[in-house]
């Protein structure tokens, strides 16, 4: 048996230190050690995107990252997307446009959408479909998810306009 490591990272704005196996999957650290169960396991092989989180500003599959590589990192999970009371624009759009059905892909899908809009604030439909291509959804046929992201982008533009005027 190998030894556990002290893993220090920032999780949704809070500094955390944990004892973990260095080769434990970041996904398991998030779900079992941090008890943040909004991040889901759908396939365990980087295919479905249900475990998507943002690590050091980049969208990643947490099932493919060994804990050791999160050392010193800045991690944002679905629990860190909304503030206390206020949903993120993307979450609001998913609610209003019907982007969530069974909900199991939704946290990962929201993370991918947040990441996409960060990189590309006004995406066209092709860019949205590319940005979400790593997140499989079995319920929606993606139509309402694509609409949700487009809606969030549109509302972000409105918010920006209003704050300027």
């Amino acid at each position: 048996m190998a030894e556990k490591m002290k893993l220090s990272l920032n999780v949704n704005g809070q500094a955390r230190t944990l004892d973990v196996w260095p080769m434990a999957r970041l996904l398991d650290v998030i779900r079992e050690d941090l008890h943040l169960t909004g991040t889901k396991e759908g396939c365990g092989e980087g295919e479905c995107g249900a475990c998507s989180v943002i690590l050091d500003g980049k969208l990643v599959n947490s099932c493919l990252i060994p804990a050791v590589q999160a050392e010193g990192g800045e991690l944002c999970t679905i629990e860190g997307v909304a503030s206390e009371e206020q949903l993120h624009l993307v979450q609001e759009s998913f609610l209003h446009c019907g982007g969530a059905q069974c909900g199991i892909c939704t946290p990962g899908m929201v993370m991918a959408a947040v990441d996409l809009l960060h990189r590309c604030p006004q995406p066209d439909e092709a860019q949205i479909r590319d940005g979400l291509a790593g997140n499989l959804c079995r319920c929606t046929g993606y139509v309402k998810i694509v609409d949700s992201v487009a809606d969030a982008a549109e509302r972000a533009l409105q918010v920006a306009k209003e704050s300027r005027s």
Binding site: L36, T37, K40, E79, L87, L95, G103
Partner: peptide, 19 residues
């Protein structure tokens, strides 16, 4: 109408078996 359990789903608060 907005899905009843929608808010729990978009925030990751919804409790599935493995959670």
């Amino acid at each position: 109408r907005i899905r009843k359990e929608g808010r729990a789903k978009v925030t990751g608060a919804a409790q599935y078996t493995d959670d």
